[in-house]
Amino acid sequence: MSKRSVQFARALIVASGIVGLGAGCGRGGVVEPGSDGGGVAVVDAGAPIDGGLACIQCDCLSADAGKPSCFDVGRSECCFAVGPLPPPDLPLA
């Protein structure tokens, strides 16, 4: 994984005027394929994912047969580094 990209993100934060930026949680973010990455089970990288219309990038919504690709449902965020994503709404209880 590109360490420079996270350093770049941290540099942007420091340049924004945030003082006292800590080192972070130190896990380095590396999640091995097949491991439990922060509560989400992942399949082995490269393992075939059967059925469905495969998204060209990641099979994100196509694990179940018959599901449309993420492009078709307009939810291809995981495939493109474009943002911003719509924030979830959380009304006061």
Partner: peptide, 22 residues
């Protein structure tokens, strides 16, 4: 996608979270 997944966790844990803590 593999890189995206790794980078998501690294950016959150080593940049976003500490900055919001700060």
């Amino acid at each position: 996608p593999v890189e995206a997944r790794e980078l998501f966790y690294a950016t959150l844990e080593d940049a976003v979270v500490p900055a919001l803590e700060a």
